[in-house]
Every structure is written in C-alpha cells, then in structure tokens.
Design a protein around this nucleic acid. Structure first.
Length: 418
DNA sequence: TCTGGGGTCCTAGGACCC
DNA sequence: TCTGGGGTCCTAGGACCC
C-alpha cells in the first residue's frame, strides 16, 4: 500500500503556527512581488478567492472580510516542510518527498498494521510536533492514494483526515466520484478532450481501451490508467539530483535599460551557480530569457530566449555570470519594457568528473574561491560576498507583508511575554 | 499601476551517420 | 514514371505537476 500525505493549505498553515490568533480567520499567502494568491486557508477559499487570483483585484475583498495577507516566506515554509517530512519518515523506511507539502510513503510488509489507525497516529504526531494539519490517503497504488487523499480532504468530518481505499468496491466508488479533470496527471488539455468524448469521471477514463488512451495521451496516460485500475505502475522515486536549475523573477517594475537587465541576469546566474554547487553539479549549457509584460496588450511584446553551449562545464559564479551576460547581449533590444527575466542552467554533470575541452578550460582557481565565498556567505548572510556587477539589493521584490523567519533566523525568533 | 516560480517527461521531426 | 534501409542524437514544443 501507498500513502499520500499532504499538508492542508500548507503556506497558510505555516503562518498560522506562529500566529494562533489567526485560527478561524481567512488567511492568504501571496507570490513573489505580492503578485497573486498562492495559498488560502479554508476560510479564504470559502470567500471565493481563487488560486492564482491577482492580489490587486481582490484588495477590496481582503479589506472587507479582514483577510490576513502574507507575502511569501519560503525560508519558513522550507524549514517547516523539513520538520514535517522528518516526522513522517519515521513511519516508513520508504518515503518519496514529492513536493514541499506532499510525500508518498510505502507500506510494504505492513500486513498486520491497521493503516487507518496508523494514519491517525501520523496526523496527531505531525500536528503535535509542528502544528501543521495533514490529510492522508492510503491505497494500493500512488494515483489511487492521490484519490483517497482528495476524499480525506473533501470530507474531513467523515474521514477524520484519513481515507483508505482497500477493496474493489471502494476503488470503484472513489473513481466514480472523481471528476476526470481532477485526476492526478490529467491536466486541462486532456480533460477537455476527454470530456468532449463523454468521459466525465475517473471511472469512465479507466474503461477506455488501451489503444485509445495511448493514442490520446501517449504512454504517460496509459500508465496512469493501469495505475488507477489498481495495478501499481508508478513506483516510489529515488531522490535524484536536478537536471535543470532555474532562477527566474518578475521585476517590481519594468526595466528598459541594459544595465538593469545585466545586473539581474548576473545575479540570477550567480544564484544558479550556488544551487549547482549545493548539489555538486556543473552545467554545460545555459538559457537566458526576457519577457515583456504579457498583460499589457498596448505595449510592444518581445519574449526572446537564447540557449548557449558552454565551452567547458562550470559552476563558478564568475564564469556563469559572464556567459549569461554574453547570452543576454545577443537577445537584448532597447525600446522594450521588460517585466521578467531568467537564467536556466542545463545539461548538468557531476562536478568531480567534468569533461574538459581541448581548447578552453575552466579556471581551476575558481574552485577554492567559490568554496571560500560559500563559506563566508553561509556565516555572514547571503550575497555578502558578491560580484561587482551585482547590486547590493539582491532581492528586488515587493514583500510588504512578510512574516518573520521564525525558525531559521535567531533575531527573528518568536518572543513570548508572560 | 498591479498578474509567481520551479520542475519533469514524452514525442515528432530534423540532421546526421553508414 | 522510377529514387533504400537502418540507425542515433538533438531539440523544440507540448503536456503535466506543485
């Protein structure tokens, strides 16, 4: 059996842990630049605030219903996530951390366990030790565990947050209940297509023949169908290093000047380099892109991107910033109002076994230099040592409502007055 | 005025090889 | 009129996830 454990309204719940006064009140968390709503408490959902709602369109509603608004505090959420995952990993030797707020557990050889009770234990422990509420779905396959989880979330009273699909009758009932667009792995395009064919529920989907599914949705869809039928096809995935690493941001205002963009791109490249070093990788290619504001139909649009191969693999701040700037030079055109840009490093290889080039070589002296820079920045704070092309203000984001980083910065720790 | 960020996998088609 | 057969590798784009 597999369990899918999912934190309820995760970001909003993290904010509430340190602000118990917000219990029962609507809470929303905004994306970077306080742009749109990326998490909502149940009370906020009940007010009809949709996922991804642009914050400026809902300002009135926020005020009217005294919605508690937070800027994203990813440092806090990441740390809370680690705590939750650590606790959950004590419940099974096999765990796959699927996202910041979700994990799969595998219960192999748990035949003498009452998984319903076991799930309740998990909920209680995570709640007691972190304050984060979770929901659990348990079933013979991963995709069915996803379905079970959805039921647990949808009917908290009846299920007490844990739902088990452990027989054929429950499986069919669950699939007949689930709308086709809510299946994990079926997105907007496929669900529209399926819906137009009269396929309305997950059960209908599993009744299609293999050839049709394959033709419509490739091998991915076919695997999903079999998994939903109760034959485990989707396995627990091993932790693996990333294949691409991106740093992309929208700007707090539009940029028109080369200097501004050069600074952003250099900084994004440095952030990518740091992420590369954290997983001991080098990259062999990188992509730089620019975007104008797609919502401003009145302005000229220009969304270029360029992919360049590097002459040698590297994870040096200096080299990546330099390559990224060269790439930017090739796509930058004056006269446009750029709203977003990004650097994506690709074709990653292990840092220790890098394949050198015959004609050009990375600067070996950067390796110890980067080690020292990482060390200093770890102690004294991010980007204390930085390139001269980088601005002092590394985070150019609107974050009007960020909560303290309670668990990762000693000077922001919660103070209690008795 | 204002609209997020970061990933994965699969396939078709082009370019190339003998 | 008619123009082989069998491969590999790479990339862009589409689909999906949170």
């Amino acid at each position: 059996m597999f369990a899918l454990v999912d934190c309820n309204n995760f970001y909003a719940s993290c904010e509430r842990v340190f602000r118990p006064d917000l219990k029962g009140k609507p809470v929303v968390v905004l994306s970077n630049n306080d742009g749109c709503v990326i998490a909502r408490s149940n009370e906020a959902k009940a007010l009809g605030i949709p996922m991804g709602a642009p914050a400026f369109e809902y300002e009135k509603l926020f005020e009217q219903h005294q919605v508690q608004v937070f800027s994203a505090n990813f440092e806090l959420y990441g740390d809370m996530s680690n705590r939750v995952m650590n606790i959950l990993s004590e419940f099974s030797p096999e765990i796959e951390i699927y996202s910041i707020d979700e994990c799969f557990l595998r219960f192999d050889g748990f035949t003498n366990f009452n998984l319903q009770d076991y799930g309740q234990q998990m909920r209680h422990r995570v709640m007691k030790w972190t304050g984060i509420p979770i929901s659990i779905g348990i079933a013979p396959t991963k995709s069915l565990a996803k379905v079970a989880n959805r039921i647990a979330k949808k009917y908290p009273q009846e299920t007490q947050g844990v739902y088990l699909i452990d027989n054929e009758k429950k499986r069919i009932k669950a699939l007949q209940w689930l709308k086709v667009e809510d299946i994990w792995g079926i997105g907007k395009q496929h669900s529209l297509r399926l819906s137009s064919m009269g396929i309305k529920t997950a059960y209908d989907f599993t009744q299609l023949d293999d050839t049709t599914v394959r033709k419509l949705m490739t091998i991915v869809g076919l695997r999903l169908k079999h998994d939903l039928q109760g034959n485990p096809v989707l396995e627990l995935e091993e932790p693996s290093i990333k294949k691409n690493i991106a740093t992309t941001r929208s700007f707090e205002s539009s940029y028109t000047e080369w200097e501004q963009l050069r600074e952003r791109i250099a900084t994004f490249a440095v952030l990518c380099a740091e992420k590369l070093r954290k997983q001991n990788s080098c990259c062999n290619a990188l992509l730089v892109f620019l975007r104008t504001n797609k919502h401003r139909k009145d302005l000229p649009q220009y969304n270029p991107s360029i992919n360049i191969k590097l002459p040698f693999p590297t994870n040096s701040n200096i080299e990546l910033a330099s390559f990224a700037t060269q790439a930017l030079k090739l796509i930058f055109k004056p006269g446009y109002a750029y709203k977003k840009a990004g650097v994506i490093v690709q074709d990653l290889s292990q840092a220790d076994y890098s394949q050198g080039s015959l004609f050009e070589k990375r600067n070996e002296r950067h390796i110890p230099l980067m080690q020292v820079i990482d060390k200093i920045n770890n102690i004294y704070g991010q980007q204390k040592v930085r390139l001269a092309t980088q601005d002092k203000r590394i985070w150019k984001m609107k974050q009007a409502y960020r909560s303290p980083r309670y668990t990762t910065h000693l000077n922001e720790i919660l103070t209690i007055q008795v």
